[in-house]
Computed example of a mutant assay.
Amino acid sequence: MKPLKSILTCAAVALGLAATTAAAEPAKVGFVYVGPVGDFGWSYEHDQGRLAVEEHFGDAVETTFVESVPEGADAERVLTQMALSGHDLIFTTSFGYMDPTINVAAKFPNVHFEHATGYKNADNVSTYSARFYEGRAVIGTIAGRMTESNKVGYIASFPIPEVIRGINSAYIHAKKVNPDVEFKIVWVYTWFDPSKEADAATALIEQGVDVIMQHTDSPAAMTIAEERGIMAFGQASDMLQFGPTARLSSIIDNWEPYYIARVQAQIDGTWESVSTWDGIAPGMVKIGAFSDRIPADIQAEAQALADSIAAGDYHPFTGPLNKQDGSVWLADGEVADDGTLAGMNFYVEGIEGDVPN
């Protein structure tokens, strides 16, 4: 029979080991992607952020992801399964996941959710997005300077405010440096469909465009631009490897710092619901290296614009600006407020065609 002191000592050791094991339990963090991680665009860059989390935290974090999840009921099913399987923090990385995120979060109040590009928050739901329109002001300037046909093509995904803002910002700044520029817009109603994106790029080229922008996720348009000898911009990632001659620059989504900070807050127990909308200054939006085919003076002009935006000296939506119908939107020197930008559903003056319903 063991003496009481020995029994108590063993119990204390056992409790200590249990406490250590509990303390060492990794935070379980999930990511849901609308496209494949190999799209070399939107989902690819979010997954680069996930990998950065793993590298930064090591064994303190366990990450999982589900790719190519349609927006809607399928997303709600995937999120429910993640919550049931013990995830502490879940990132939902597409606009169409907004309502599924809110619905599932209401059922799992102890799980924290982060929704990208949405606007609905809850006690356990944060929202985050990037001011991509800042980057589009920069590449719009380059496009306006570089086009020889004065026709710029834009492959658009869905008519949501984020995409409409991007079209408007790119057009405004292309028009500032080239009053003769025209935008040709093709809506493909998908985030990731290389076949549709390639067809859209081909259709734009047949309309005479010699520069292509996109708000879709695959490098298909860049590949077509390379094959057809025109110019293009990388979207979400650099995409240089798909158009070494065609690519002029790119808008790069840099989610790594945000993901690391939010996972750290989860680990520290300081996570709270926030709304984040960052741009060039904090580095969430990065401008890819300029191609050597862009003349030095145009590179300098584009860089100066990016620097001015980052410094807070210039806002891409500064009046005078009119809506498409000619009505005044912003007076001279007036800056658009975030609420209007977040819900933007109109084209600015000069863009042809209607915003789809």
Rank of each mutant, 00 (worst) to 15 (best):
H173W: 15
V177I: 12
W191L: 12
V104M: 09
G140W: 04
V163Y: 06
H173C: 08
A143D: 06
V138P: 09
A105Q: 07
Y97M: 04
G144S: 10
T117A: 10
A116P: 04
N124K: 06
K151H: 06
I139Q: 11
F132P: 06
M146K: 02
K120D: 06
I155K: 01
G96T: 08
I167H: 06
F95Q: 09
I167Q: 09
P161I: 00
I185S: 09
Y171K: 01
T92I: 00
F108R: 09
P159R: 03
T117V: 15
I102T: 13
V163A: 10
F132I: 07
W191E: 10
T190I: 07
S149E: 14
D193L: 06
D193I: 05
K176T: 06
N168H: 03
G118N: 07
Y97F: 15
I185D: 08
A122H: 05
T101F: 08
I155M: 06
Y119G: 07
V186K: 09
H112K: 15
T101P: 07
A170F: 02
K120T: 15
V188I: 14
M98K: 12
S169G: 12
M98Q: 15
P161W: 00
Y189R: 14
G144L: 13
F113P: 11
I142K: 02
T147A: 05
G140K: 05
V186D: 11
G166I: 07
V138M: 06
N150S: 04
V188E: 12
T141D: 04
V163E: 10
N150V: 03
T127F: 00
M98R: 14
I102P: 07
P109Q: 08
K151L: 11
D180Y: 00
S126E: 10
